[in-house]
Design a binder for these strands. Structure first.
Lengths: 195, 195
DNA sequence: GATTTAACTGAACACACGTTCAAATCAAAG
DNA sequence: CTTTGATTTGAACGTGTGTTCAGTTAAATC
């Protein structure tokens, strides 16, 4: 069992996923060839098949990892201040997490149609899980009387769509800092569901 | 000059665009072949080149037509009731227009990266024009004191992102009617920018 | 009914695709 | 220093790609 430690696969594996994510985000899954990914990593196309059974699974793994990271990151948050505090925590968390992983967010949203039906179901389930986290906050706030939302499920999708929209224009070096963007969106979110 | 009236191109031309739009929306521009489009229309691939110089221009024309239709449709609206009335008109208009043209909206958003730089600039300019329509309403409302928006440009993108998000879940035969959806979103939009 | 010509076919072009696999490579273990 | 086997190469497989174009078809005009 030679080369179990420090073997190239420890390096090449992550690099394949990084290169694939960047290329899929820029050009789209269907427009990127295995040879392009291999070239970005610095290997021949055949070598990629040590790291993924096929192109479709490579995409699926990237999307699943992203969604699981998102859920795990949110679940490690510890909001305080009741439903209102939880909503603020969620708003700021979502903007911060998603702007830092723009490629993964983009791919996970745009390439759903390139997944097999079974893989699609898994990713869609994870997305629903995330939406439910926000829905739960809105539902609780509505019960407590601090929010006025007649349709918590739809409100949660509306808020998430608004927040994810930041990714289409936000640039690290832009006029507004991330903190300022968070503040602007938090004000809009807060008011949009206010009682 | 025979066959100038009732010629097949009057029929085939629109059908090519319809088929391309539906296929691009479902599978993505890069994943759809000219032969697939031709097959959906009922002709051979070569015949498509009577209607478009190439595949890329076909996409561009679909996107440009959609954006121009959107702008023209909005510009034909006659909102009343000041900035608040205009915002309600915009909200309801955007939801109604976009849910009726889900394929075109989807393609116009997802396939921007498949446009040549020059074509991209045109489409992006039209999108900015549309955003400016809403921004103008928000700016006016802020000046009049009926809205509280510190960043009208960003607020307009936030609102549009939220409203366009309806397309990801709304189904004609679903639990909620379009009128109900409009009402839910109008309440959220109104409150989100309320003074 | 002959003429005109828009519309379309069908084959071909050169190239790129995802994937496979025997052979070569080379770092670590003995 | 030899052995081992994980890793990668490089060529090949069959299939599909966007696009071109000489030739065929058929509808409208005279």
């Amino acid at each position: 069992m030679a080369r179990t430690q420090g073997s190239h696969s420890d390096i090449t594996g992550p690099r394949v996923r990084e290169a694939a994510l960047a290329l899929f985000a820029r050009h789209g899954f269907a427009a990127v060839s295995m040879r392009q990914i291999a070239s970005a990593v610095g290997v021949q196309a055949g070598a990629l098949y040590n790291y993924t059974p096929d192109k479709q699974t490579l995409l699926y793994d990237l999307m699943r990892t992203h969604m699981e990271d998102l859920l795990a990151a949110w679940d490690s948050q510890t909001p305080t201040g009741g439903a209102l505090g939880a909503l603020e925590t969620f708003t700021r968390f979502h903007i911060r997490f998603n702007t830092r992983r723009a490629d993964a967010v983009f791919v996970s949203y745009m390439e759903l149609r390139n997944l097999s039906p079974e893989n699609f179901e898994v990713i869609e389930g994870l997305r629903r899980d995330y939406e439910t986290r926000l829905e739960t906050i809105l539902r609780q706030g509505a019960r407590e009387g601090v929010f006025a939302v007649s349709e918590p499920r739809i409100a949660s999708m509306a808020v998430i769509a608004m927040l994810t929209g930041v990714n289409t224009w936000f640039r690290e070096q832009g006029r507004l800092s991330l903190a300022e963007v968070e503040a602007i969106y938090w004000e809009m979110v807060r008011k949009s569901v206010a009682a």
